[in-house]
Design a protein around this nucleic acid. Structure first.
Length: 179
DNA sequence: TGCCCGATTAACT
DNA sequence: GTTAATCGGGCAA
């Protein structure tokens, strides 16, 4: 899972005709208390305990939706939270859905990203390589930076947040002094 | 059955 | 910098 996470930076995620490059994500694993899967399978997180390559969507703070990719090995309940995209396709559609003009605010956050792509609980458990999802590996080299995860209160020390170095589309900048 | 809290965001002081 | 919005899951009673 920790090997897969940085490889997804720079990959392109498409959903129902719109999407962009993944520039930020966080890894979660059932052995650490910050993960939803920490306390074992439940109706909500059942997807995480299934095979890899599927989407786990959950409601955050009763308001937003957040998208995860289930990672291998199967049964480890590992997942990566997609935190930010660099929008590349369907800009007008995303702008209309989000109600903002600034491209950098379209997908720079897990809740924003789902609103822009219109991802909801209806898409929980769908395969990432089947419509309406589509996932393309990155083509060129990408500089990946790592840091502590955001917005959680447990296991804050684990540096399992990954992002593209210097990207303008991160939900928050990395505190990497060399960037 | 009830209570507390969160892998968030946007608006407001 | 602070706080409201808003709801389902997880845990205590």
């Amino acid at each position: 899972m920790l090997e897969v996470a940085p490889d997804l930076i720079g990959a392109t995620l498409m959903f129902d005709g719109v999407g962009g490059r993944i520039v930020e994500l966080e890894a979660y694993h059932h052995t650490e208390p910050a993960a939803h899967s920490f306390r074992g399978p439940t109706p909500r997180n059942a997807v995480m305990f299934g095979p890899p390559g599927f989407a786990y969507v959950y409601r955050s703070y009763g308001i937003h939706w957040c998208l995860n990719f289930v990672c291998e090995p199967e049964g480890s309940a590992a997942a990566v939270l997609i935190r930010a995209l660099e929008p590349t396709v369907g800009l007008p559609v995303m702008r209309r859905r989000r109600g903002v003009a600034d491209v950098r605010l379209l997908c720079s956050g897990p809740g924003r990203l789902c609103e822009a792509l219109r991802i909801t609980a209806a898409h929980n458990g769908l395969a990432l390589d089947q419509p309406p999802f589509a996932l393309f590996a990155r083509t060129g080299a990408v500089e990946v930076v790592r840091g502590p995860r955001i917005g959680i209160t447990k296991a804050v020390d684990k540096p399992w947040r990954y992002g593209e170095k210097g990207s303008r589309f991160l939900s928050k900048p990395f505190s990497d002094p060399s960037s």
